[in-house]
């Protein structure tokens, strides 16, 4: 068991911090699930944090010149290198503490990026930071495509989804590859804490982020983030889709604590994936055969996860 977790009792709905380290009034789209998740992340972390933010929607909507929604120190870097800059920040603070130039007080360091910045262009930089064992947390806000440049596919775009660079038509049915399992890649680095979270289960999300911050060494939290603009879904249904993703086993919630898989929510009566797929324009072209394939693969992936949780 991780000693840092012993004193942490978890957030309660009644006692959620009222403070908003990420201020309201930013420019996110209506119904943005990503900024909602980020708000919860920041509530869990509080103000004693340095944030290194990759290029992406959250960077743009929180900082339209001359405004900022960030009430904490915030560095916007390039697209690929949030984890590398966080490594530098963490190492430099160690040096300054050693020399007595700054107080010994612990400050969390968070690198944050979207699915493109995390699973595609930034992957090697995250891998390096995990390998070196910096004491920081990496949060991936996964809205399953490059939304800020006009909805292009990413490695985390789900199978069959329509994006501008995975268009369905006579030659294709949309995204032809299965969603890249970035949490599994994080786990493969033998870091102490990996978790998946969803804004629909906000207490679970906040607890996981807090644990990721508490643990010594690198931690990774992968957060499902509905994007009404990119998915062609109704803004008011973002939380509903977040719930459906979990209930249909499309986006399972779990933790991997020192290599041990723990299911956060076991789905015993799963809903069919078709319930999740309908209502999102990105999936509306899919025929029965594709939906059947998705159902089978989702079931198989979930089964693997259950086995992992039973094994470890």
């Amino acid at each position: 068991m991780i000693p840092e977790f012993e004193k942490f009792k978890g957030f309660k709905a009644k006692s959620i911090p009222k403070d908003e380290p990420l201020a309201p009034g930013h420019r996110a789209c209506q119904g943005c699930g990503e900024v909602l998740a980020l708000r919860m992340v920041m509530k869990a972390l509080g103000r004693d944090v340095i944030v290194c933010s990759a290029t992406g929607c959250m960077e743009i909507i929180t900082t339209p010149y001359p405004h900022t929604a960030w009430r904490v120190p915030w560095i916007h870097i390039a697209f690929e290198n949030a984890a590398a800059v966080a490594s530098g920040v963490e190492s430099a603070r160690k040096v300054l503490k050693r020399k007595g130039r700054i107080p010994k007080k612990h400050i969390d360091i968070m690198a944050v990026g979207g699915d493109g910045a995390t699973g595609d262009i930034g992957l090697q930089w995250i891998s390096g930071a995990f390998e070196r064992g910096h004491d920081f947390l990496y949060v991936c806000l996964d809205n399953e495509a490059y939304m800020n440049t006009g909805v292009q596919r990413s490695g985390c775009t789900p199978y069959g989804a329509m994006t501008t660079t995975s268009p369905p038509g006579s030659e294709s049915f949309g995204q032809v590859t299965w969603k890249k399992n970035v949490p599994a890649i994080a786990v493969a680095h033998n870091i102490p804490y990996v978790a998946t979270a969803s804004p629909a289960y906000y207490l679970d999300l906040m607890n996981k982020v807090k644990k990721a911050a508490l643990v010594k060494g690198p931690a990774y939290v992968h957060i499902y983030s509905p994007c009404p603009t990119g998915w062609g879904s109704a803004g008011e249904r973002s939380i509903e889709f977040s719930k459906l993703a979990v209930e249909t086993k499309v986006f399972p919630l779990y933790e991997v604590i020192e290599g041990r898989y723990v299911m956060s929510r076991k789905i015993t009566k799963p809903k069919p994936v078709s319930e999740y797929l309908k209502g999102q324009k990105r999936f509306r072209h899919l025929d029965e055969a594709h939906i059947d394939y998705i159902q089978k693969r989702v079931d198989a992936d979930y089964e693997k996860l259950i086995k992992l949780s039973e094994m470890t």
Binding site: G116, I121, Y146, N148, T149, G150, Q152, T164, T165, S166, P167, G169, S170, E171, S172
Partner: peptide
């Protein structure tokens, strides 16, 4: 290619045109 403003339209168009 890789998405980047202001060139993304080139990739967006070719994603559907090239297979044809």
């Amino acid at each position: 290619g890789y998405p980047i403003t202001p060139s993304s339209e080139i990739a967006d168009f070719l994603a559907s045109a090239l297979p044809r």
